[in-house]
Amino acid sequence: MQGLGSSGKCGSCGWIGSSIGRKQLIGITGVGLSLFVLIHMLENMLILVGARPYNEYTHFLTSNPLIYLAEGGLLAIFLLHVIFALAISWTNCKARDSRYAVASNGPKGTSMVQRSLWAQGLLILVFLILHLISFKYGAEYSVDYGPGPIRDMHKLVVEVFHQPAYVVWYVVALIVLGFHLSHGVGSSFQTVGLHHPRYQKCIRALSVSYALIVALGFITEPLYVYFIHRG
């Protein structure tokens, strides 16, 4: 009789090819992206403080040579998350070749948020591209507070967020991001193997509150600019 070790399967090279390895990669990169959006949201809150701190902080970030390293790392994490998530969604979709006539329901059902994670991801991807075009690669206004001209990001933000359609789209996209996080943050714990009956409720609560804080924080900026800060 053959022992278990004789099948000749390769563990370490198989990790990234396996369903579990891929999910773990999506989970870990997802945690990285979750931390990024939290920090980004907190930075955006500077809009509530004033134009000058907002612009000076933007300048501090973008003039730091480490920014290229950070941006490169972030891009890599993001691409890994998106590419592997799309690949696994495709595999998952093919794993059921005929559809049920009646969807599962009640306690045995699956929520819309969980069924549409891939669609949320695609919407966030579109949002992100448009977001970079509007802001990072948007109009280059400049302002001088003394030590020389720096980019007037505040002016651009105020200008963009005075377009009602843009505000609506921004808010919708950020609500979708909130749903994505409400599943993703908690799910990544389970995917890497962190599960304990005593802490499950805490993990769930953390996931939902994290999503709420990030989404509400982000939404604050356009709403503040549109309704309160009339430029």
Binding site: S19, I20, K94
Partner: peptide
């Protein structure tokens, strides 16, 4: 060719 787990 089972699918992967989404932790639903």
């Amino acid at each position: 060719r089972f699918g992967a787990c989404t932790n639903t």
